[in-house]
Amino acid sequence: MDIYKAGSRPTRRANEEWFTGTVLQDPVIEAPEPARVRALRVEFEPGARTAWHTHPLGQTLHVLSGVGLVGLRDEAPWYIRAGDTVWIPPGEEHWHGATPETGMVHLAIQEAQDGQVADWLEKVSDDDYLMPAD
């Protein structure tokens, strides 16, 4: 058994190649093989978001605080709020982040396949991000 004490692993700024705006990540778990689970606490400042991406085995988002957005190709994004849980199937192109006015924190849970958890694509355009949400 491993116990990771609070504050023992540093917060890191998300990779600017795959995120727009200020996004901070705190590791929750990167389980050793044969386990595949990976989880991060991700904090998005207002206006911050991921790039388009997919996950080989899908992804679960659980919103911890704030109001955010999650979007699919050629569709208006959906609002997500504290307490909401989102399942994104394997291979589905999507993005997620804060609204323009409100920050959002979520837990991102995914599994690695051959060591990979995501396939990163291009950044989300302002037109896609600012499309009226449902």
Rank of each mutant, 00 (worst) to 15 (best):
E101R: 14
A14E: 05
D119E: 14
L61K: 02
P34N: 07
Y4L: 14
P27E: 15
P34F: 08
L107C: 05
R49T: 05
F44Q: 03
A48H: 03
P46R: 06
T99R: 02
Q113K: 15
H94T: 02
V70H: 10
D128R: 10
I29Y: 13
L72S: 10
I88L: 12
A35I: 00
A51R: 02
V70E: 09
P27R: 15
I80H: 06
W87H: 13
E16P: 00
Y4N: 12
A39E: 05
H106R: 02
V37R: 11
I80T: 03
P10V: 09
H55F: 08
Q25F: 08
E75V: 01
D127W: 04
A108N: 03
I88F: 01
L121Q: 10
T11I: 15
G71F: 00
R81M: 08
E92K: 14
R41M: 08
A118Q: 08
S125P: 03
W52S: 01
E30R: 15
T102F: 10
Q59C: 07
V117D: 15
N15K: 07
T50L: 09
T54M: 08
V37H: 06
L69K: 03
E30W: 12
P56S: 13
R41W: 05
A82P: 00
P34H: 09
Q25C: 14
G97A: 09
L40N: 14
E122R: 11
P89I: 03
A31P: 00
G58M: 04
L61N: 01
A98R: 02
W87V: 06
E17C: 00
I80W: 06
Y79N: 04
D119H: 14
M131T: 15
L57R: 15
R9K: 13
R12P: 00
G91E: 13
A98V: 02
L121K: 14
L40H: 10
V42I: 15
T85W: 02
S65W: 02
D84K: 02
V63T: 06
T60G: 08
T85N: 02
Y4T: 15
D128E: 15
Q116M: 10
D126R: 11
A35D: 10
A51F: 06
D127N: 09
I109R: 02
N15F: 01
I3H: 15
L121T: 01
D26M: 10
P77F: 02
E101L: 11
P90S: 13
I3L: 13
E43Y: 07
W120N: 04
H53E: 05
E93N: 04
V63M: 07
Q25D: 08
L107Q: 07
G58W: 09
G21E: 05
V42D: 05
L57I: 04
E17H: 06
Q110C: 11
L69C: 01
T99C: 09
W18A: 09
A51Q: 05
W87S: 05
G71N: 03
P32H: 12
W95L: 02
E17P: 00
V28C: 10
A108F: 01
W52P: 01
Q25T: 13
E101P: 00
V86M: 04
F44G: 02
G91V: 05
L72C: 06
R49K: 13
